[in-house]
Amino acid sequence: MQNLKYLTLILVFLSVSTFAQSKKPNIIVIMIDDMGWRDVGFMGSKYYETPNIDALASKGMVFTDAYASAANCAPSRASLMSGQWTPRHGIYTVGTSARGQSRYRKLIPIKNNEYIPKDNLLIPKVLRGAGYITCHAGKWHLSDNPVTHGFDVNIGGNHAGNPGSYYPPYKKVPLEAPTDDKYLTELIMDRTLDFVKTTNKKPFFLYYSPYAVHTPIQPVKSLLYKYDNKTSWNGQNNPQYATMVENLDIQIGRLITVLRTLNKLENTLILFSSDNGGVYTITKQRPLRAGKGSYYEGGIREPLFAFWHNQIEAGTKSDYPVSNLDFYPTILEAAGINVPMDKVLDGQSILPLLVQGKRLKERPLFWHFPIYLESGNDESQDPFFVAAQVRPFDWGIGN
């Protein structure tokens, strides 16, 4: 009888634990690569077609003044995952910080980490410790394998900053193509949906970070006809890039459909943004100046919206300046998780703004890039850095 009593207590505890766990929100961070501030319909583009993204944005809160924590891929993603700005994790740029020819260089190249430090506690590890199943899908760029930093599942992520090719073979991406013409963005979503379907009632964290729309610009051939003769808008007129944007939108539409079908959408917090500005030679963000790699607005200002059914009021907009540094504390608060002891965060939770409409205190946003800017941004070449008559090809475009 006594054993039966203990068994009953254990079953009640497990039941309560499972119930509490099921009430934790699923969390999805959609981090697009090199998508500019104006490269989606909900931010005003009349050229790119993003109906699925726009529809989801209309059901949440759109931020007009959202920023990446860096103007190129690796440092921005490191800051998002760690919740810390660049001097803390030491990733300032991609590759070497010794830019330009040494005979012209006046700055002493700063030590640059190409890998996120192993002891830096990233979002997925904290969430996994709180009962979440975690999945990375797409570009990682911070180490050789995202599994070593808290992800249970890795779909195509490694240290590569771009895929090499969106058509098979994908070169730098460790995924096998099921057919000879399978587009990479579609394959990554196929595998992502497989993951979502296996989560059952357990809360999950999905970092959906497709390599798109990073170079190489390789069009989705079935969509080209829509853009070949389309009227340009505000400096946006690249048909090949437009097909990549629309195809990405189609994949996100597939994700939303599956979430809705599985009755998971209503309890899912979604944050959508980009890691840095659009590539200036490919897409323009007017009236913002320059693009990726530059610390003018075109290089760091991003599209951003947050969706959470019945928690975030639909159709709302905010001009409060936010940064992807704010994602870490916001996610933890939404999940009911305390900030780990000794973890320093440089952002703040914007959950009170999202779910209660509270106006947050004004605060400064900082960027630190003690490295020469490279070429590729005609609107942002600093005359001080090129005063030594360094020719453009001496600098490269390796942002």
Rank of each mutant, 00 (worst) to 15 (best):
L332V: 05
E313G: 12
Q348K: 15
A290K: 01
I371L: 06
A314T: 09
L288R: 00
K361H: 13
P370A: 04
K343W: 04
S318E: 06
G298K: 02
R301G: 01
A290W: 00
L354Q: 15
P340L: 08
D342E: 11
Y295E: 08
A306D: 06
D342T: 03
S318A: 12
L354T: 13
E374R: 07
Y372A: 11
F327N: 13
I350A: 13
Y320I: 10
D342G: 07
F327Y: 15
S375W: 01
S349I: 14
S318I: 10
V344F: 04
V344P: 08
S349L: 13
Y296D: 02
L288T: 00
E362F: 05
S318C: 12
L373R: 05
Y320H: 05
E333D: 11
E297H: 00
L332S: 06
E297Y: 01
I312H: 15
P370M: 02
E374K: 07
E374G: 01
Y296I: 07
L353H: 01
P303R: 03
R363T: 12
G347V: 03
R301M: 05
K343H: 08
P352S: 06
D326E: 05
N324M: 04
H309S: 11
L353W: 04
K361D: 14
T316N: 15
I350W: 01
H368R: 06
I371F: 08
Q311K: 15
I300F: 06
P329R: 04
K358A: 14
V339P: 06
K361M: 09
L304S: 00
K361I: 07
H368E: 13
Y372F: 13
A290Y: 03
K343T: 14
Q348A: 14
W367C: 10
K361W: 02
V322M: 11
A306Y: 00
I300L: 13
I312Q: 15
P340T: 00
F307S: 09
F366D: 04
L354I: 15
Q356S: 15
I337C: 11
I331Q: 00
L288G: 00
G336D: 12
L351T: 02
I371T: 02
G357Y: 12
L360Q: 02
S349K: 11
L365W: 04
Q311T: 15
Y372D: 11
F305Q: 00
I337W: 13
H368P: 05
K292Q: 10
L288N: 03
S318D: 13
L288F: 09
L373P: 04
D342K: 10
